[in-house]
């Protein structure tokens, strides 16, 4: 069982270091695009999570992510599936 909390912490640290964004301050409806978080940003964080937590993310699924809520839902689903 992967820990959602630890994955969420890694995503928060990534956003803070690379985008100066506080994940905790964002509502689930916030659009990632409005944060300057593009597909390269998405796959950078996905690569980091795959390296650290041995997760696997489908590209097609990640390209459908639009909001902070979408992203967190996928992370949560990965944890319960594992």
């Amino acid at each position: 069982m992967k820990s959602y909390d630890s994955i969420r912490r890694d995503v928060a640290a990534f956003l803070a270091a690379n985008y100066a964004i506080e994940l905790d301050s964002l509502g689930p409806e916030t659009k990632l695009e409005d944060l300057g978080f593009d597909s390269l940003g998405m796959f950078s964080v996905v690569t980091l999570l795959e390296n650290k937590h041995a997760l696997k993310f489908e590209s097609s699924m990640m390209l459908r992510v639009r909001t902070v809520g979408d992203l967190l839902d996928i992370l949560r689903a990965q944890c319960s599936a594992a």
Binding site: L40, F43, S44, T47, L48, E50, N51
Partner: peptide, 10 residues
């Protein structure tokens, strides 16, 4: 032993 960042190429 890690996958390489997608930013490497660009």
């Amino acid at each position: 032993g890690n996958s390489v960042s997608p930013l490497f190429i660009p």
